[in-house]
Amino acid sequence: MTPRVVFPNKILPYLLVAPQLAITLVFFYWPAGQALYQSMLREDPFGLKSRFIWFDNFRRVLADPAYLNSIKVTVIFSIATAVVAMGVALLLAVMAEKVIRGKGFYRTLMIWPYAVAPAIAGMLFLFMFNPSIGTLAVLLRKAGVHWDPLLNGTHAMILLVIAAAWKQISYNFLFFVAGLQAIPKTLIEAAAIDGAGETKRFWTIVFPLLAPTTFFLLVINTVYALFDTFGIVHAVTGGGPGKATETLVYKVYNDGFVNLMLGVSAAESVILMAIVIALTAVQFRYIERKVHYG
């Protein structure tokens, strides 16, 4: 037990945490409170007059088919991004374990994409998959796929998921590599002697022992897909075609800054806030129980 620090001065402890508190208050609680307040206002587009209307904005948002569509889009996008980003990262990490020469070099290369800004990552894939000039789009067309993310919503979604996942793979890779290294080698050897082939060893020994890492990444990736992908959506599809890739975060932006419905936009961001709080609570409460911490 570390000894409890006792401050003789009553004010000093508060002063010491004041900078952190100030940052949290100014950058988190104040905007959150502001959003909460604004979500109950109806404002004209020029901000000249506003009216307090209680929960009318929420009622309006939840009855809007476009919003319900956006929820569906977000669910598909988040699940797909998290699954692809984690699946590919795990595969690469397992493969990287087997590299004998140049392991460090290989790993370093794998980490680079994380340093690329989301919008630039988005542009990268936009160019590569551009139906008219994209190098990969040409290959796809040659393979007989009628590739057109500008008109086909499903294609747009696939493109978005690839771009969003690509950026997150590096981060996941790093954690999976660390997680794999933390598994004692003798366990793998014991399993081999116990007659388990490589695939079986992975699913019965390695994967369960990676559970803490996987769980942690699941939370991180879900939050990433929900919130940090605005830049990618904005750069790649802008929510289109139609509303096929308009995620909740993107709709907040669209309704607030493009359509200038500030009250509605605020209500949407409050709902988003509630979703994240609920999601995190559920994840920690239920999934963590089934995770074995070695």
């Binding site: 004692p184 003798t186 014991a190 002697i193 007659g195 020994i205």
Partner: peptide, 16 residues
């Protein structure tokens, strides 16, 4: 090792 039909007891036991 999978096909050798041997069993091994490790120093750190290597229990799953």
């Amino acid at each position: 090792p999978t096909e050798r039909d041997i069993a091994m007891v490790f120093q750190n036991y290597a229990l799953y």
